[in-house]
Design a protein around this nucleic acid. Sequence first.
DNA 1: GTCGTTTTGACACTATGCTGTCGTTATGAA
DNA 2: TTCATAACGACAGCATAGTGTCAAAACGAC
Lengths: 159, 159
Amino acid sequence: MNADFDPFLHPTSRLALEVFRLNGALIAAGDMLVEPLGLTSARWQVLGAITQAEGGLPTAGIARAMGLTRQSVQRVVDDLARLGLVRFAPNPHHKRAKLVQLTPEGRMASAAASARWAPLAEALATAVTVPALDEAAQVLHRLATALAALTAPSSGDTP
Amino acid sequence: MNADFDPFLHPTSRLALEVFRLNGALIAAGDMLVEPLGLTSARWQVLGAITQAEGGLPTAGIARAMGLTRQSVQRVVDDLARLGLVRFAPNPHHKRAKLVQLTPEGRMASAAASARWAPLAEALATAVTVPALDEAAQVLHRLATALAALTAPSSGDTP
DNA sequence: GTCGTTTTGACACTATGCTGTCGTTATGAA
DNA sequence: TTCATAACGACAGCATAGTGTCAAAACGAC
């Protein structure tokens, strides 16, 4: 009865479990890191995605950039708007999909978070090596792509 | 003002973002995979942790094995007990910390989930290579360890 | 131009995981 | 043995991310 397959010993399974653990550790570390700024990991990530895009981008665009659903990002964006870190600007290409832009306060918060993250990122890079980081990132990227292709050639929102 | 550091271009940052994406993709794929069995990714993972340990283990032990908090696992365990997939057995070493064990139904569900996961794990392994998987897993493991050491030499529940 | 499809925002609901807290039980040092 | 400490289960509350659904807006085929 196929007893020669222990799913937890499969290389893919072991990597998946490591992804789960590191994901949790990164979120916890991020929460600690930006907590003095009144931020959380999720809000920080959304701020970062907006920082990346010059001129701002709509909520659904943020979600696509982060691999999440519109609905999840929307609440965080609303929180950030309530905190005065982002604002909504009219979108010349779409009447309803307003552009989410950083306010000066948001830009300062994003910069402060980056400044706090930098030394930790350096320390982690020395815990392994930069080439190993790059190669691991490439492997994870390929796996995510393959997983998206294997599951759900679907419709609708695709987180 | 340190403008030569773009936090999103740092190798550690790029890997972190890939971890977030793959984590989400794996959970989504797992949910699809075991949904016909009445399971979810979280319940499947807890079932797996119990399957690993012969004789069962207490809730806090499951949490340690998975890198989560007792409280998070407890609710899932209660759900599984309500579904009849696990049961509580007296613990000779601790009166309150009952051992969580699989019922025959739980064993069947765990085996069915493994059978569904196996081909997907194989397909993903061929999307990259097994040595690459192993090396990536090792890198993630070292990062998680380093991160735990750098943040919170703390007390109490340490997920 | 019209109509069907897709995209987007909005809202309600659920699932997962965290912190905080309490009382109980083990454990170990004095 | 006694007592401080740690570990464990239980419960409440919050943050994050998912699904489902709806209406409005944009887009494309005809």
